[in-house]
């Protein structure tokens, strides 16, 4: 009886393992070669490329788990159904209630897998300088030269030149319901076009004038919440030329769905000439803007809807309200 049981056991477990192994290898290979290279959001930047690799890697680990459970379930449905002609009586005895080997190996395997994934994720996060995610006002994983460039961006002498390996500081200002961009290294001009040089480390400084938004440059794989009165910094390195989409990915009110625009990555020389010509063309407009800063006081009576129900503007703001100096169009 005992012998028969153990043969049965080996027989079932062997069947399941063989099916699982074959299917897992096939599916993983298919995924790696057919799907892997096309996993969104592509390879336009270092963060996109890194996160694409991470996603693919997780898929390669997850697919065998999915297949394992599905094969097991399918096997159970097929073989251990009461309707099957000649269905065996269910297993009984202490082994039906507990099985030390099965339990311990399950716990050990899942724990090792999970700890490995946490370690893997942490390493990938650190070596990719935050993976394109918003690190708040005091980023801790930064590309070389970023801290210096960020500090310099607040001074009037900030500058950037092509092929200098400098970090380009871009400010993303979100408000209901649009994004605008300021370039502190080019006099702090503001524009609705996001143009970036290729092969350059970019520091996105994301802030909001009203509610919480989220700056999601899809193909660049950069995502950082835009919080009022907070600077949220995210880094990436541009790799390829092309255009990309920017969307708001944090619900910000009625027209959240329409809060998108597009940008492009161009060669360093093309970027330089665009930035210089825009700086000149926008000079008058820039003079009307508040001096470049990491955050701006929200318009207490405008876009944010007013925090005082009587309609009065915040009376004690010492900082001028963003855009208040600009004359009406």
């Amino acid at each position: 009886m005992a012998n028969e049981n153990s043969t049965n056991e080996t027989h079932h477990l062997r069947n399941i393992t063989v099916i699982w192994l074959i299917l897992s290898v096939i599916v993983d290979l298919l995924f790696w070669f057919l799907v892997g290279p096309h996993v969104p959001p592509g390879t336009m930047t270092s963060s996109a490329k890194g996160n694409q690799f991470d996603f693919t890697f997780l898929c390669l680990m997850a697919l065998p788990v999915l297949i394992g459970v599905w094969v097991y379930m399918g096997y159970a449905i097929r073989i251990w159904s009461a309707k099957r002609p000649g269905a065996e009586e269910p297993m009984t005895g202490p082994n039906a209630r507990t099985n030390k080997t099965a339990q311990v190996s399950w716990i050990v395997i899942t724990s090792v897998a999970v700890l490995f994934l946490a370690g893997f994720g942490t390493v990938e996060l650190v070596i990719s300088q935050g993976s394109g995610g918003g690190e708040g006002p005091n980023p801790i994983w930064t590309p070389p030269g970023a801290t210096k460039a960020e500090a310099a961006a607040l001074t009037p002498k900030a500058s950037w030149s092509a092929n200098s390996n400098q970090v380009l500081t871009v400010q993303v200002i979100a408000q209901q319901w649009k994004f605008t961009y300021r370039y502190p290294q080019f006099g702090g001009f503001e524009t609705t076009q996001l143009v970036l040089p290729a092969n350059t480390n970019i520091a996105f400084n994301v802030t909001s004038l009203d509610v919480i938004h989220s700056f999601w440059a899809y193909q660049l794989d950069v995502k950082a919440d835009a919080n009022p009165q907070q600077n949220d910094v995210a880094f990436t390195q541009t790799k390829q030329l092309g255009s990309f989409t920017v969307r708001c990915s944090e619900l910000c009110g009625i027209w959240h769905g329409t809060m998108f625009n597009s940008g492009k990555v161009v060669s360093e020389a093309a970027f330089m000439s665009w930035a210089q010509s825009t700086e000149q063309a926008n000079a008058q407009n820039t003079a009307d803007l508040p001096p470049f800063a990491w955050t701006y006081v929200p318009d207490a009576n405008g876009a944010a809807g007013g925090y005082y129900t009587d309609g009065n503007v915040t009376p004690y703001s010492t900082v001028e309200i963003y855009g208040s100096k600009q004359s009406a169009p």
Binding site: F55, V65, L66, W70, G133, D221, K223, E250
Partner: peptide, 25 residues
């Protein structure tokens, strides 16, 4: 079991900070 497996595994994707940049929100 079928559904929660998919829900649970995609949860691991979301918990991975680098992948979270792509899939959050």
């Amino acid at each position: 079991f079928f559904n929660f497996l998919i829900g649970g595994i995609t949860g691991v994707f979301l918990s991975d900070v680098p992948v979270n940049v792509t899939v959050h929100g």
